[in-house]
Nucleic acid binder design. Structure first.
Lengths: 187, 187, 187, 187
DNA sequence: GATGAATGAGCATTCATTCAT
DNA sequence: GATGAATGAATGCTCATTCAT
C-alpha cells in the first residue's frame, strides 16, 4: 500500500471514529506513518481530502452495484439482487458507509457538486423508473419509491448492526425485509 | 423571549446551517444580541450547549408524541396517528429535526448518556411491542419493526422536503405511505 | 463579623491557598457568602484588595511588635523578646505570614509605596542601630544585621513548620536559635 | 542560540519582571522573535514551561555546586567553599535565582514532584549531616542547620543586592558572614 | 516526492468590573 | 449598601498550512 492509499484509509477510519473536526491532519499523518506535510502533497487542503474521500466512496459503491446488476431483464429478482447488493456493501464496508452517512449530515455536503448527488442517474433509480413504466411497480413517483427503498435498507442496516444475529438469522431477516418491501412496492 | 431562549434558538439555527464546528460561540452570541460571555453564563461549554440542545429537542419530540397518543386502545389507527404525529413534528420543526439528524451522525452522540438514547421506553416502541403481543403485527422483533417504522418516516420526510408538493399531494403521499407501511407490518 | 471583615479574611485564605491569579473575585465573594458586586463596594479593584491586605497585615505585625517591646532599656533581653515576638506572630498567624511572603515575591510588590517597605523605621531596625551605636552589637552595617536577623527568623520558621515538634522541643530550638544568633551579632 | 533556548531565556526574564500571570505567552513569543505557536511546539502548556524552567534552574544550581565541591575531606573549608559557591551562583545568576524565589512562593510549587523538592539529597544537606556525625558541627538536627545555612545566604544575598558595595566591601562582608555563620554552627 | 519545524489566524473560555434594580 | 446578570477585552492554545532543506 503506497503512502496515498495509507493516508486515505487512515483518514476514513479516524474521521468516522472522531469526526471531521475531531481528527487533525497531524493525527492522520502520524497514524499513517508519514510526515505532516506529506498529506498536503496529495490533497491541497483538509476539506479537499474530506470531499475526495466522499466522492470516491460513492464511486466504489456505484461500481459495486453496477457490476452486480443483471441489465438484461427486469423483474422482482432484479430488485432483490440490487437490494442484497446494496445491503451487503454497507455491511461489508461499514466504516465507509458510516463515513458517507456522517458526510451526508454535515455541512460539507453543500460543498459537493450537485452532479455527484443527483440520483436520477443512479442504477437503482433507473431500475425503479423502468419498473413503474412497465407497471411492475406501483404508479407512484420514482423519487418516492427510491427514497423508501433506501430507507428500508438503512433501517435494516441499523437493525442488523445493533443486534447480534446468527448467520441464518441475518439471512432470514434480510429476505423477510425484502419481501415486505416488495409487497409494499409492487403494483 | 429571554436571553437564554434566544441563545438556544439562535444556536440551533446556526448549527444546522453551518455545522457544529462551523459555528463559533461568538457568532451565536452576536446573532443573539448578547455578549460573548453571556452564553457561558447559561452553558458551561460549547459542548454542553450542543448536548443540551439535543436532549431538549428529543424531550420536546417525545412530549409532542405522548400528548397525541390515544393510550386506551390499540389498533391500526393508533399506529396511523403516531405515524402522522411523528412526521408532522419533523416537517413542522424541520430545523430541530435536522439538528437531531446532524447530532446523531456526529461524534457528540458518544457523549450522551445511554439512557437518553435507549428506545425501549419510546412510546412507539412500546406500541409496537404491544401490537406484536396482541398479534396485530407480524411476529418479528420489535426492534426491527421499530427501525423500519422510523426509516419509513425518514424516507418520507426526505421525499416531501425535496419535492414541491401541493397540500393535497402531500396528504395523499403520507396516507399512501402509511398504508404501505401498514401492509408491511400487519400480521 | 461584618461583610468587609469576612471578605478580607476569606480573601487572605484563598490567596494563600490558590495564589493571586488562582483566586477569582467571584470565588472570594462566594466563599464569603456575599454577591459578586459587594466586594467592589469595599475595594475598587482586585489589585487594591491585594495591596490593602498586604499593608494591613504589615501594620498588624508592627503593632504587635511595638506592643511587646520594652522601650526603656536595651540589652540582650530586648533582642530576645523581639526575636520571640516576631517568631510567635509568624507561627500564630501562619496564613497571614505566608500571604506576606507570597506578596513579597510577587510583582505586586512594585506597586507598593516605598514608604511602606522602608525598614529604616522598623522597631527592630532602630533597636539594632542603637545596639551598634552602644557597642552592644558588632560594628557592622545595621542593614546587614537586620537582614541576618530576619533571615534567621525565617529559617527557623521554616524548620518549625516542617517538623512535628513537641511544645518543649519547639521552645528549646527557639532558645538555641536565639543564642546562636546572639553569639553571631554581639560584639 | 536556537529557538528553544531563546524562548527559555526570554521567558525567565519576563516572568521575573512581570510575574507568571503578568507575562502572556504571546509576549514571550514576540520578545523571542518567534510565532505564538512555536512556544507550544516546545512546551505543551504555559504551566509546563513554568515548571520546566524551575526544574532546570534547580538542576543548574546543583551541577554548579557539585562541581565546586571538594568531596575528599570535610572541614571548615568545605563549608566555606560551599557557602561561597551558593552565594556566587545566586549573585551571578540573579534573574534565575529570583525566578526560583518567585516560584517557591507561588502555587506552582504544589505542582512539582516532591522528589525535586526533597533536600535530603542536596550536597549541602549531606555535608551538614556528615559534619554533625563527625562532631564538627553542633549536635542539632541537620534540617535545622540546613535551614539556617540557607537563610544566612538568603539574608546576605538581600543585603548585597540592596547596597552598593565595592568589590572589597563585598568580599569582606561575605567573609565576615561566613565566619559568623561558622561560629554559630561549629561545635 | 518527503520532511517537520515554524507559522499565525482563529477559537473557546475566563473573569474583573459595571450597573440597573 | 447589596445584588448578580451582563459585559467584552484578554489569553492560552490549536491546527491547517507552508516551505526551506
Amino acid at each position: 500500500m503506497n503512502k496515498k492509499q495509507t493516508i486515505v484509509s487512515t483518514a476514513i477510519q479516524l474521521f468516522v471514529e472522531f469526526g471531521f473536526h475531531g481528527t487533525t491532519t497531524s493525527k492522520i499523518a502520524q497514524e499513517s506513518g508519514v510526515a505532516n506535510g506529506t498529506l498536503f502533497n496529495y490533497f491541497k487542503t483538509k476539506d479537499e481530502l474530506i470531499v475526495t474521500l466522499y466522492s470516491s466512496i460513492l464511486q466504489e459503491m456505484d461500481d459495486f452495484i453496477i457490476e452486480r446488476m443483471d441489465s438484461n431483464s427486469i423483474s422482482k429478482e432484479s430488485f432483490q439482487s440490487l437490494f442484497y447488493a446494496l445491503l451487503s456493501w454497507n455491511l461489508d464496508n461499514r466504516i465507509r458507509y458510516e463515513y458517507v452517512l456522517q458526510f451526508n449530515h454535515s455541512p460539507y455536503l453543500k460543498g459537493v457538486a450537485p452532479r455527484i448527488l443527483n440520483h436520477q442517474d443512479h442504477p437503482l433509480f433507473i431500475l425503479i423508473q423502468n419498473g413503474i413504466d412497465l407497471v411492475l411497480l406501483k404508479p407512484m413517483p420514482a423519487d418516492f419509491i427510491f427514497s423508501l427503498f433506501n430507507s428500508q435498507i438503512n433501517g435494516l442496516y441499523n437493525y442488523v448492526i445493533s443486534n447480534d444475529l446468527t448467520k441464518e438469522g441475518q439471512v432470514e431477516i434480510v429476505q423477510d425485509s425484502f419481501e415486505m418491501l416488495w409487497k409494499m412496492m409492487k403494483d
